[in-house]
Amino acid sequence: MWLRFSLTRLGRFLGLDNLSVDVSGSDDFTRFLVHKGHLRRNGVHLSGLLPKYNEQKNRWETSSHRTGGLRSEQIWLFGYLYVESEGRHIRARGIGVVSSVTDLGFGFEVNGKPYPRHADIIGWHDEKHQRQMKALELANRMQREMDPR
């Protein structure tokens, strides 16, 4: 389904037709922030980065999207189309580079599900204070852009 969509006009606009499987450290990523508690003064609150536990995969993970090669308006459109849903309203996006994730010892798993640009930040510790520490460090390295709508 995604293969066919990637070749459509919208798919090409979102850069899905030439999306590489590999991610480089200099690629950008976005975490869409969908709750007011995810925002802090001029930045991203660690609550917006703390992972949820995936019981099927038996791991902690934070959902994100690789956005390399996309312009800001394309990224927002991507969010409106694939991340927003009934009851889930985007407020802002946290912006970072993949190396800021991997330098902290995380994995950046490009899995393409449920959207081709989807990636999970993985490698979180089971101890809460370790997760807080990493989330703080990551938040400290990220920028924030408010939803322009």
Partner: peptide, 9 residues
């Protein structure tokens, strides 16, 4: 703030 694991921070 509320944390996603159900704690308050």
């Amino acid at each position: 703030a509320a944390d996603p694991d159900g704690e308050i921070s």
